[in-house]
Amino acid sequence: MNSLNNSNTPFHRYSLKQRLYSLYAIWYREILIYLRNSIKVFTSIFLPILLVFFFSAGFQSFFAQSNFSYNFKEFFFSGILALGTAVVTMTSTLSIVWDKEFGFLREILVSPVPRSNIALGKILGAVTTSLIQGGILLALSSWIGIEMNLLIFIKTFIFICIFNIGVGALSVLIASSIQKTESFSIVLQVLIAPMSFLSGALFPLTQLPQWLMRFLYINPFTYGVDGVRWLMLANTLPQKTIAEITFFNFHQCCAFLILFDALMIILAVRKLR
């Protein structure tokens, strides 16, 4: 029994079981909310497919006239895959702002859950929802004309996961400093638009002006899109061609994203403590 004149430094002791339980609870809730929202499930899967069909149909003829050594569909599909998962991850963290606005966060804050698990659970939940989309799109990619095998599938899947953990942590960080749901969606729009255009998912980045090039180095989307292309198109296009359509090499992508993940997770966990 603690005496009245106890030291005032907070002391927490959590069993491993409790840590995992609570992490699972927060993750499970994210998944439940995602699956409950049938419109979101539908759009997150079909929007990228629609995009690929409409865009590539339009650009196909344009690309046919020029002398590119690759098919626009392959270029575009791989880009949309990486970009789409990142957007789903970011929008999924909206639930943090919700929780703050509608009070559920307090229920979590008074429960004996390690505070660091709040951020981790939210990140994992957001990443999982995007991986559902990513997995389906990857499975469909051979239909688009991309050479797929199990190894490529697994490698790309893991890479998408690593990419999205960082993106998820970034948006958890943003979401936890915003109070209203409306402002969060505006902030996301403002952030996602330039990051997507500079990611190289929609058009090759070779013709960019010099001052814009600088931003590529700090844009996690560029690394994500390029990394996915290196892995996903490995059997479809020769290495030389992939080097043409990407900005960074695969090692740069991995190194940046792992550092980015670590930094963002630390910041997000500290923010939600």
Binding site: N2, N6, N8, T9, F11, V110, S111, P112
Partner: peptide, 11 residues
Amino acid sequence: YNVLSRPDMVR
């Protein structure tokens, strides 16, 4: 349990 030193047990 002291709310300052053992918030986990209080919760």
